[in-house]
């Protein structure tokens, strides 16, 4: 298996303050990585650095052996779902228009998406289970529907790496489990490398292959179950962390019987 992302002693400073400090890890191709940690812990900065949108102050980032800036020039390596979309409520685009944006890199300059691109966009919508929304106005959709359409957009360009920043915002708890399940299926089917930022450490651990616990420093990287101990969580989130383990049998209920 080849290495998808290789990060070596990465430090990123914004306004002379460390946002990320001495972070190193590697991620193999085809794995699903969850990036968790408290707010302002540098999660978004880490993915932006991998995408080439933020620059390292020191250290290096390689994606499939190339610098992120190299990937930016060509485009198309990443499917990206930003955390905040801040979209104008009157933005004139149907759902299919938005998903076709994901094809622009493949279409190239001075051309407009053709039938092949439309078919690809419709398949991406079908994968996300929202193909019936194709002609709806994007801004009329609910938060959860917009999220699915945006991931369909990110998938439409056949990316090698899918980067999702807090994708479960706007999706209810039951929907979240389905959603993670769907991502897991995509990972296997398309041999996608997935990086997902989340503040919800609980549910994420069930679905991801590896987890990175980030609070400026990288506190833990590896098997998700290894992160669920009090030492890691206390250093990550500070004191007063209460660890609740969800198992098939609820211990408290058993005791009450």
């Amino acid at each position: 298996m080849s290495i998808a992302v290789e990060i070596d002693s990465l430090t990123v400073k914004i306004k002379n303050k460390d946002v990320l400090k001495n972070v190193s890890f590697t991620l193999e191709e085809g794995l699903f990585l969850g990036i968790v940690g408290p707010n302002a812990g540098g999660k978004t900065t880490l993915v932006r650095t991998i995408l080439g949108l933020a620059r390292p102050s020191s250290g290096s980032v390689r994606v499939f052996g190339k610098s992120p800036e190299g990937h930016l020039v060509r485009g198309g390596a990443f499917g990206y779902l930003p955390q905040h979309q801040n979209i104008d409520p009157g933005f004139p685009a149907s759902v299919i228009d938005i998903v076709l944006m994901g094809r622009y890199n493949a279409v190239g300059f001075f051309r407009w998406p053709g039938k092949k691109d439309t078919d690809k966009a419709l398949r991406s919508l079908a994968v996300m289970g929202v193909e019936d929304l194709k002609d709806a106005q994007y801004t009329h959709l609910s938060g959860g529907q917009q999220q699915r359409v945006s991931i369909a957009r990110a998938l439409a360009g056949d990316p090698r790496v899918l980067i999702l920043d807090e994708p479960s915002t706007g999706i209810d708890v039951v929907g979240q489990e389905d959603f993670y399940h769907l991502l897991k299926g995509l990972q296997k089917k398309m041999n996608l490398t997935i990086l997902m930022v989340s503040h919800d450490i609980g549910t994420v651990t069930t679905y991801v292959d590896e987890i990175a616990c980030l609070n400026i420093n990288l506190y833990y990287h590896g098997n998700p179950l290894g992160a669920l101990n009090e030492k890691v969580l206390t250093s990550l989130y500070g004191k007063n962390v209460d660890l609740l383990l969800h198992t098939d049998v609820c211990e408290k209920c058993e005791r009450l019987r």
Binding site: L72, V73, G76, I87, Y104, F109, P113
Partner: peptide, 22 residues
């Protein structure tokens, strides 16, 4: 006209446009 789709994507979200190689 020549850069309509690029301008459309920049208008939608500049960072997505960058990631798309624009």
């Amino acid at each position: 006209v020549a850069f309509l789709k690029e301008l459309f994507l920049i208008t939608y979200n500049e960072e997505l446009a960058r990631v798309s190689g624009i």
